Amino acid sequence: MKSRYARIAMAALMFVLSAVSVPLLTPSTAHAQSSSTAAMTNADVVKLAKLGFGSEIIKEKINGASTVNFKLDVDDLVKLKNAGVSQDVISAMLKRADGGGAASASGSAMASASGPAGYPGGPDVTLVTKDGGSVHLRSISGTMSTTNAVVTVLMHQNYPGMAAAVRTHDPRPSFIVNSTVQPKGSIYIVSLDVDKGDQDRSLKLGNARFWGGMKNVGAPDKDNQVAYDVVSMGNGNQWKLTPSNDLKPGEYGLFSGGLYDFGVDP
């Protein structure tokens, strides 16, 4: 009798289980579940932009992603812009990649994990190299000094340390600059003089004569300016700056109030 009841109970249980839909972890569903934790990519950002999500929402998704795998070389930036991704979203992608340590320029450049406080209000700048590497540059501020030279007072902007944290072997790197201002006359590529005595790097600015008059105040001295070619990208608020000639090994920077410093190694 007990065995009969047991068989009836088992049959009832099997009937109930057969009527319940039990999800199975197939390879496809396993991939779907694991993809929810996958790194955020350029394609994800483009998808959100094309669906009409605002910049603030997309930036929140970028900043809230557990990991990111953004491709931010020059061609990638152009594709993002052409796909309708806004400038501030692209800037958020660059900053997130930089903060996550993913923005080293493929061995050609590396960014310091921490550095001096940034100069407020400056443009957004990314250094890119011929091998496809890129690194987001941070602006630093310096201190002013003056030197008497016969009938002229020389003015210098001095920056801490004798070498920039960002280094490259590319003698002619380019710079992607997000700025509403035309670069020529407002953004300069400059060479820096290393002062081993003071353990810093200096940039000569305009000068003043003892009997009155000041010249080129706030602009780098012509001897320190590096000629460059500029190309407008996207909607006109993004520019590509490239030195007209190869840079010699030494210390350099983009100067626009603050200094986006980098160094060229042999």
Score class of each variant (00 low, 15 high):
92 A>V: 03
84 G>T: 03
72 L>N: 08
80 L>E: 04
66 S>R: 14
64 G>M: 06
78 V>M: 09
79 K>W: 03
82 N>T: 11
78 V>E: 12
66 S>L: 15
89 V>L: 03
72 L>P: 09
79 K>G: 07
88 D>E: 08
76 D>L: 07
85 V>W: 01
88 D>K: 01
75 D>H: 08
77 L>M: 15
89 V>P: 00
82 N>Q: 14
86 S>H: 00
68 V>E: 11
80 L>C: 06
89 V>I: 03
86 S>I: 02
70 F>I: 10
74 V>M: 11
75 D>W: 06
72 L>K: 07
76 D>K: 06
73 D>S: 12
70 F>M: 11
69 N>E: 13
74 V>H: 13
63 N>W: 07
82 N>I: 05
88 D>V: 02
67 T>A: 15
72 L>C: 13
70 F>N: 05
80 L>Y: 02
90 I>F: 02
82 N>V: 09
64 G>T: 07
86 S>R: 01
66 S>A: 15
75 D>E: 14
68 V>P: 07
85 V>N: 01
70 F>C: 11
83 A>Q: 01
67 T>M: 14
66 S>N: 13
74 V>K: 13
73 D>I: 08
67 T>E: 15
84 G>Y: 03
84 G>C: 06
81 K>Q: 12
70 F>Y: 14
74 V>R: 12
83 A>F: 01
78 V>C: 04
84 G>D: 04
63 N>V: 05
71 K>V: 13
78 V>Q: 11
69 N>Y: 08
86 S>D: 06
85 V>Q: 03
87 Q>T: 10
77 L>D: 08
90 I>H: 00
73 D>C: 09
91 S>G: 12
68 V>M: 12
66 S>P: 09
70 F>G: 08
